[in-house]
Amino acid sequence: MTEVKSIDARGLSCPQPAMLARQAMQKTGKGKLEILVDTETAHQNITRLAEHAGWRVTAEAQPDGITKLVLTK
């Protein structure tokens, strides 16, 4: 079973959520990444970056306004 790397980007200022996502995508190459975000800005920034890099992004709403972004490639 492939390891799923999870990143907690909650509460971080710009551009750290997108930066962490980008680093993880580059390091992982392909597979599955899970990223927790708590702002719409981080959600949109990561989605744009990931889709541009050829990853598929799905968003799962979690309690307390948190969103889990699942990136697959």
Partner: peptide, 19 residues
């Protein structure tokens, strides 16, 4: 739109994101 006049340059250089 998340408009940011510093993020514009930062994201373009750092993340290759020109939005």
């Amino acid at each position: 739109s998340r408009f940011c006049t510093v993020g514009a340059i930062r994201d373009s250089i750092m993340l290759r994101d020109n939005y």
